[in-house]
Design a protein around this nucleic acid. Structure first.
Lengths: 96, 96
DNA sequence: TTCTGTTATACGTGAAAAGCGTATAAGCGG
DNA sequence: CCGCTTATACGCTTTTCACGTATAACAGAA
């Protein structure tokens, strides 16, 4: 039950974070936490190893994300969304 | 939102065209570790708070990077490079 | 001028989580 | 059988980030 409690606390903490971020003036980017990393990679038809090395992280980390054992950090989620939305832009930036 | 997902998958599918049309398989992206995060942010003319919330991380983390107290992870570095190279593309991906 | 309310930036502390190397193993097409 | 892809365990290193405090630079009010 210590576990359940931690979960609740964590949930509350996140809600707080969202509430805070939501009121930043101007534009706050809405970030869905339920990113389907596997689907994004699948669309690229790259293997885990290829996808990982191409975009700058380890295979191990990618697996953690795909298998939902760990959640990608904010920046990583943002990157994944850009890859999903416009992979060409990412390729261009990283190749140059 | 199944729609949103399809959109992302569709977008990612473009990677294919590039991956195949361009170089051969498995080219690796080189990543300079000495990223000048402050300069990248300066180019966007955003405050630390704005920059951080817009791209998905905390102000504190951004400061760690700018002051070189900590190094951004691979995915974060990749994101920063994309922001430096084509910030509009990132905005587009995150706003949708 | 002086007080006062932003706004931007710096940083100590510490818990939680992510990042990731290495090793091992199973499934599969060739 | 071999090589490639993916899954998983173990475990150590590093980052992330909340919370709090502190310091300037400014702008407008008193």
């Amino acid at each position: 039950m210590a576990k359940a409690k931690n979960k609740m606390v964590e949930g509350a903490r996140q809600a707080l974070a969202i509430a805070r971020g939501g009121k930043v003036k101007g534009f706050r980017v809405h970030e869905p936490k339920d990113l389907d990393v596997r689907a994004i990679r699948a669309a690229t038809k790259l293997s885990q190893a290829q996808f990982a090395s191409r975009f700058g992280f380890s295979v191990r980390t990618l697996q953690e994300w795909e298998q939902r054992r760990e959640v990608a950090t904010g920046a990583a989620r943002a990157l994944l969304r850009v890859i999903a939305h416009d992979p060409a832009a990412v390729e261009r930036a990283l190749v140059s």
